[in-house]
Nucleic acid binder design. Structure first.
Length: 294
DNA sequence: AAGGGCATCAACCGCAGTCGT
DNA sequence: CACGACTGCGGTTGATGCCCT
């Protein structure tokens, strides 16, 4: 992730002595094994060794590469960070949508979910889920596995994401030759094809035919594109908030103040209205859902 | 300016499954 | 079949940077 400055690589590139060590106890020789952040030298050794010999057999790889690390540690470092096809950067709208969709199907099967997000690791997806999604469940005072929270995701967040993705795609196809050239590749900045997104978007149980939310229940929830939305404030437009996270992620969605359906307080306070995808009816609906399920 | 709290993410840990002997 | 080594997965922790007071 290219967020939060120099910590992003996590390799301890300036201080190689800060790593703690541990005794293996299980090997025939009592070598001290390094733990903690990887150094540039270690990364270099690992990359070089894998380039020459391939990956796998991690324990012996660690030994032969001259790394005082466990095979596990080497494997993790390679898979989650050093592998050339690892994608860095913010989780995009399309990826958020896919994560929500796939998690609703498979639960915490992170590696399985990661297989459908090219270049993303299970660790990254897991971290995303725990830091962003679970946070909102906590703020809604409900369990992340509860029906209420799943309904919220299914009937509100996911349609919102679809709207924004579609809006972004529409904007892309109608802009200048620069973006048209990119669009002509059939993919967006995520590397996911629009067909992939469409496939996810049209997956049966993402739809909401029976919840009385007619205002957001057309094919892509298209009736509800927030007027103030612009492609620039979508993560596909590489916009970030002060945390370097996409402004469009779920952070914008959760605020549920005590309010009546015609109360506009959400737009006046708290989340910047230009980023807000909730409307008053949604908030009211959410409140009813939670109240009726408590 | 300082420091406490929070958010994020890389890395570690424990466990279970697989495979070879 | 039993055992040990290896691998992969999901949960958790620790370090770091940013924000807020």
């Amino acid at each position: 992730m290219e967020v939060k400055g120099t910590r992003s690589s996590s390799a301890n590139y300036s201080n190689t002595s800060s790593c703690s060590t541990l005794q293996t106890g299980s090997t025939d020789e009592d070598i001290d094994l390094r733990r903690g952040p990887w150094t540039v030298e270690e990364d270099f050794k690992l990359i070089n060794y894998i380039a020459n010999h391939g990956e796998g057999r991690w324990n012996s790889l660690a030994r032969y590469a001259g790394l005082k690390r466990t095979g596990k540690s080497c494997r993790l470092r390679w898979l989650n960070y050093l592998r050339p096809d690892v994608r860095r950067g913010n989780i995009t709208l399309e990826e958020q949508l896919l994560i929500l969709e796939l998690h609703s199907r498979w639960g915490n099967r992170w590696s399985k979910i990661a297989q459908h997000l090219p270049g993303r690791t299970d660790n990254e997806i897991k971290n995303y889920w725990r830091t962003r999604v679970q946070k909102h469940a906590k703020q809604l005072k409900c369990d992340v596995n509860s029906k209420q929270f799943k309904d919220t995701m299914r009937y509100l967040w996911m349609p919102r994401l679809m709207e924004r993705i579609q809006a972004a795609n529409n904007a892309t196809t109608t802009t200048t030759a620069t973006t048209a050239a990119a669009a002509a590749t059939g993919s967006n900045s995520t590397g996911l094809t629009t067909a992939t997104v469409g496939a996810a978007a049209t997956t049966g149980h993402m739809m909401m035919p029976h919840m009385g939310l007619n205002n957001i229940s057309n094919e892509f929830g298209g009736s509800h594109v927030t007027p103030s939305y612009t492609p620039e404030n979508s993560s596909t437009g590489a916009s970030s908030d002060s945390f370097g996270t996409p402004v469009s992620d779920l952070t914008d969605y959760y605020t549920i103040p005590e309010m009546e359906p015609n109360n506009n307080q959400l737009l006046d306070g708290g989340v910047d209205a230009s980023d807000n995808l909730w409307n008053v009816e949604d908030i009211w609906f959410l409140q009813q859902q939670f109240n009726s399920n408590m």
